[in-house]
Design a protein around this nucleic acid. Structure first.
Lengths: 225, 225
DNA sequence: ATCTAAAATAACACGATGTCAGATTCTGAA
DNA sequence: TTCAGAATCTGACATCGTGTTATTTTAGAT
């Protein structure tokens, strides 16, 4: 367990089509930032519209001009993280080169992003249990991963790099492992050490898919002999 | 996805110290059963004291004579399932004999219990996000598994059956994988096919710990050669 | 400086919670 | 069988958070 800096990443306003930044945009961003700040220091269950708006300059009811409810706000926060995660895990899904190396890189990136955004992810899954819409958004996010991983496993199976087994259930289990391990490790303070978490996930993925003989030090073997 | 029978298991009253079964005990059991029935057909977020007590003979406010709130009720339901799970996963933790066989047996049992109790488990984790006390009860339950698995891995490492690595982070990841994979698969209808889920979990556990060479058909190899 | 549309607010109705005093229903002793 | 005390149940209330709307305030273009 280690933790020191916690600069919760800020949300910035998109300049308008008109070029200027309106009052509306500023308030909206202020609310989103207040939410991020709040979630770095409190669980989602303690977030009320009141407690949230208290730290902005404006009154409670203004909230509803920007968001339908707290869950819609969470869905928007999820979208920002979703983008980062998709970007960083791309390599293994699409990349060319040694699959083991690519897998390592993707997991590295995933751990890094989740370390930075842990509280948002935890709050999202927490909030999803009380809202059908958000629950579906989360499920869909996970499903994209399940599809991607399944496809990649099947491709590598066709090449004889991965033994033959029913790919989808394994993909689902591994993805759920990632999601909840990372949320558990980084979703609240004190956060676990990222290296330990990464080592564990890498070990499990590689042992399961490519075989533990590929676990040797970092990036030694680039092609199968 | 398959599903047909869904006999949600009933909760029975414990005979009193006096030997008789009081009115109080019957009502209490009725509420618990109503809760189980409800959770087989609705998510926890839709459960209110009102909706719950509607299906018992008694009024809403009687609920509070038996439970502090809905979360305390969930904690009691969790306890019943917890017992079953501990019982069925005992083998691998304490048992003697081929560790791979024992691991298979434990996972078999775990899948079976979760298939029967899926909705209760899902409801528990859902409810845990909105209540600190229940959240801690769940965390403690998981922690017992983490401790047990860590100990077992370290013991087998000492025997050279499992390669040397930091056992605890791997144990945590594997346990979280089990928990959320099973909840996802069996926590609501339609439930997934138990066999597929079991195959996937067994594959991941065995590949990671003992090596994929032990994945051969069911119970062939009893001792390491 | 004025005017208008956007933004913020105050006040309201609603629904769920948890409590409590009083009513009702059991129970078993006479 | 009766009835007193205890156990159980209920209705009514106070509270809290939500989401809406009618109205006021403010920003910024002309």
């Amino acid at each position: 367990m280690s933790d020191s800096e916690q600069l919760s990443s800020r949300i910035h306003v998109n300049p308008q089509p008109s070029g200027k930044i309106g009052k509306s945009e500023r308030t909206r961003a202020a609310i989103l930032n207040a939410a991020v700040d709040f979630l770095w220091t409190h669980p989602f269950r303690d977030m009320t519209v009141n407690s949230l708006m208290a730290s902005t300059g404006v009154g409670r009811s203004a909230f509803y001009q920007y968001f339908k409810d707290l869950h819609e706000l969470m869905e928007i926060l999820l979208d920002t993280v979703k983008g980062e995660i998709m970007a960083v895990t791309g390599p293994w899904f699409t990349g060319v080169g040694d699959p083991v190396v690519l897998l390592r890189e993707s997991l590295d990136g995933l751990v890094e992003v989740c370390y930075q955004q842990g509280p948002i992810l935890r709050a999202t899954t927490d909030a999803a249990t009380t809202d059908e819409r958000l629950e579906k958004a989360w499920a869909q996010f996970i499903k994209r991963f399940n599809d991607g991983v399944t496809t990649r496993i099947e491709a590598d199976q066709a090449q004889g790099l991965i033994p033959d087994f029913d790919a989808r259930p394994v993909a689902i289990a591994l993805n759920l492992m990632d999601a909840y391990t990372l949320i558990e490790a980084f979703g609240r303070r004190p956060r676990s050490k990222p290296e330990q978490v990464r080592e564990a996930l890498v070990r499990i993925w590689i042992s399961t898919l490519y075989g533990s003989e590929w676990l040797g030090n970092e990036s030694s073997n680039l092609v199968r002999t």
